[in-house]
């Protein structure tokens, strides 16, 4: 697949259809891929990698590129990334006409930290062949079943369908029955004090690095309220850990109805806090209150929480919350 993608991209470079591409760059290990901009076909041929560790969602990088750079930029998007792309498009954060999308097929991505946890930290190389992951270590070659080391977010994959692309590699995928709300239900079924303690424990590990916010394709504000001196909530940390936890809750509110559930927040969290569950709870609630809505599904449908319809004349706006537990 990688070589086909490279071949096609080189063609696009040569035909001057695109002037740059954003993709995954080879690192020191084959699981150490850096989202990166390729400015020439030579660079791309040499350093582009698409493999089981190409997890990074590249859509958000397009904001800056389409704001600043001239010419068309090619982007590689996995199915889940296309939802983020649509969402950004809907919010006018990127210019569609400056982007060329190659949809790349996606099986589950692998989680290097799971592999290391299982097989040791002295890993030199990891590769997956169907169901088995082969790992080269300083200690020799080891194997592990793929199912044990799949990236958490991919275990609840919502869709293999690319909702937007100019060109698609592989077969058109389908929306999946992800069962992704099962985890939310577990939380919902907790007693309030249990749930409170669950989140307090999880969030207590937060180091305040902002990786979740800065990677999030829904967090695209020119100036985040948490960085804005005039906002009244700006503070690197609060002296009180409860207020620090509030960062995540406020952030979840800010992306409510806009979050596509791409799972980047949890993936990049250095402390493995399941932040996506906060967002997913909102998605579930919105679905229950206002009918199913998937952010990024298309660019026409507006989220129920960020829309006013003429039929919203008061008080018909207020629906009976029949499904509220």
């Amino acid at each position: 697949m990688q070589s086909e993608i490279i071949k096609r991209t080189v063609e696009l470079f040569n035909s001057e259809e695109i002037v740059r591409a954003i993709g995954w760059r080879k690192g020191d290990f084959d699981y150490d891929l850096n989202p990166s901009i390729f400015k020439s076909s030579e660079d791309l041929e040499k350093n582009f990698v698409y493999n089981d560790f190409s997890s990074a969602n590249l859509s958000k990088f397009l904001i800056k590129i389409s704001q600043k750079e001239d010419g068309k930029t090619l982007v590689f998007l996995k199915s889940c990334d296309t939802y983020s792309f649509n969402s950004l498009l809907q919010e006018h954060r990127i210019s569609r006409d400056k982007i060329y999308i190659i949809g790349v097929p996606c099986e589950e991505n692998l989680d290097p930290s799971k592999i290391k946890a299982a097989l040791g930290e002295d890993v030199l190389s990891m590769s997956c062949d169907g169901e088995t992951v082969t790992v080269e270590t300083l200690d020799g070659t080891k194997t592990i079943s793929k199912s044990e080391v799949i990236l958490d977010r991919c275990l609840a994959c919502k869709s293999r369908k690319h909702v937007v692309y100019d060109e698609l590699f592989g077969e058109e995928g389908e929306v999946l029955d992800s069962k992704r709300f099962d985890q939310v239900e577990i939380l919902e079924n907790m007693k309030p004090e249990e749930r409170y303690s669950f989140w307090r424990t999880e969030l207590s590990r937060c180091i305040g690095c902002n990786a979740c916010r800065d990677i999030c394709p829904a967090c695209t504000c020119e100036k985040c309220v948490f960085d804005n001196r005039d906002s009244g909530v700006e503070n690197k940390v609060a002296t009180n850990d409860f207020e620090e936890n509030m960062f995540h809750i406020i952030r979840a509110f800010h992306v409510a109805g806009r979050c596509t559930d791409c799972g980047e927040c949890s993936r990049v969290c250095p402390e493995d806090i399941p932040l996506h569950l906060l967002n997913r709870k909102f998605i579930k609630d919105i679905n229950e209150f206002y009918g199913n809505y998937q952010a990024g599904d298309d660019i026409e449908t507006l989220a129920p929480l960020t829309r006013f319809d003429a039929v919203d004349v008061e008080p018909s706006i207020v629906k009976t919350r029949e499904n509220v537990k």
């Binding site: 850096n34 989202p35 990166s36 901009i37 180091i207 690095c209 902002n210 990786a211 800065d214």
Partner: peptide, 16 residues
């Protein structure tokens, strides 16, 4: 320029 082109400006590296 190239090394930093996709730096998202979070503080993870500095905090760990």
């Amino acid at each position: 320029e190239d090394l930093s082109s996709t730096c998202i400006g979070c503080g993870t590296c500095t905090y760990v």
